[in-house]
Design a protein around this nucleic acid. Structure first.
Lengths: 214, 214
DNA sequence: ACCTGAACACCGTTCAAGT
DNA sequence: ACCTGAACACCGTTCAAGT
């Protein structure tokens, strides 16, 4: 995996090639509107290509969307801790998740973040447009976590299984931890948050016999 | 609250009424296949009703799906199922957790619940008084979950371990699922929420070898 | 108020046909 | 191998028309 690049034009000859043009068009559309749906026809039209041609390069809509996300991540995030093969797999995964969590901040920053989330996504009536905007974010996160799981699976550190569902599970745990950071509890955030994260990771890695209990 | 019922036929007169028939049809379809997509036409046909009529009772697809979930939870969870020794332990625990989740509602009710939570606990500066108020709630929930774990442990259905930490973990998952219900995603709430809940329970019961993967 | 069914504007995927 | 565009079988939503 990881064979996703936006550019690799061979010699002078012609322009970027159809595959790239499609990827570019889709990325541009996402740039203009993060909630863009990237339908076959819309992307094909934007790339100046037929739907059949698009399907030839990206046999399925899911493949297209993943490829676009991969291409964007390739541009934007050169490396992350998941590739640090010196350290054990589960430790790296926890590290990655902790990074996501850290982005939400703690204390008043966490509260501000959720205030924002509440204002934009929860308070207003959920129009179709809003739903799409949120789904775009969610899909990006989901894809990121799935990417990490994919790396571990390639190493053989993760048993075969439904990585999409595993990612959903981990994201739910992250959401739970994140909202708890914004709530006025005290609870040994330091200890119990970490235990929860570790347990969640262990539960998908199938390694530990009796997790959580410590 | 709790105004979601599958049945409440008045006197003799006619059958269940269109709204109920639709709800029943959808619930049946979910029973047959938990991954059913519940499209307008499929549900309408199954209920023996026109798409227009379906739309009259459920103005949007999202409303339909929320209503079905509410109806199912209403049917299925009348009172504390933890002591129902006829059924397997993990099933009962899932049931209890689902009940907690159901109390938060779906759709606009879920959003209202989180709006309230936001107003009272997240938005204001966390005074000591506020923290105590929240902690009281949290402790109640924690205690409830620990109670369930205690019952299962007494049966020998749960390996020895730190039930407090296990409860914390489960509450975090519930928080995550609950906030996701208030967010405008669509994501097969029906399927993936259930998978997440099952996985969370399996992970603390230490039973399954390779959970989540299905 | 409740219900019908056609119509509209979209989907994703398939495929014979071209170059 | 790559590309085209029509065709198929679906969507969710809207709406004039009936009762």
């Amino acid at each position: 995996m990881g064979d996703t690049e936006l550019e690799r034009n061979d010699v002078g000859s012609a322009g970027p090639g159809t595959r790239d043009r499609i990827l570019r068009a889709a990325a541009t559309m996402l740039g203009e509107d993060p909630a863009a749906r990237l339908s076959v026809r819309a992307v094909a039209a934007r790339a100046g290509v037929s739907t059949g041609s698009l399907r030839h390069h990206f046999p399925t809509q899911r493949v297209l969307q993943d490829a676009v996300l991969d291409a964007i991540y390739d541009l934007v995030a050169p490396e992350d801790p998941i590739r640090d093969i010196a350290r054990p797999a589960r430790e790296r995964l926890v590290q990655c998740l902790r990074q996501v969590l850290a982005a939400g901040g703690t204390g008043s920053r966490a509260r501000a973040a959720w205030r924002k989330a509440h204002e934009t996504f929860i308070a207003p009536e959920p129009t179709e447009e809003l739903r799409q905007a949120y789904l775009a974010q969610e899909r990006a996160m989901q894809h990121r976590v799935e990417h990490w799981l994919g790396v571990l699976a390639d190493e053989g550190a993760l048993p075969d299984g439904d990585n999409a569902q595993r990612a959903r599970f981990l994201l739910t745990v992250l959401n739970g931890l994140s909202i708890e950071r914004a709530l006025p509890g005290q609870t040994s955030t330091l200890v119990s948050e970490n235990a929860t994260l570790l347990h969640a990771v262990d539960s998908i890695m199938g390694g530990a016999a009796d997790p959580v209990t410590g």
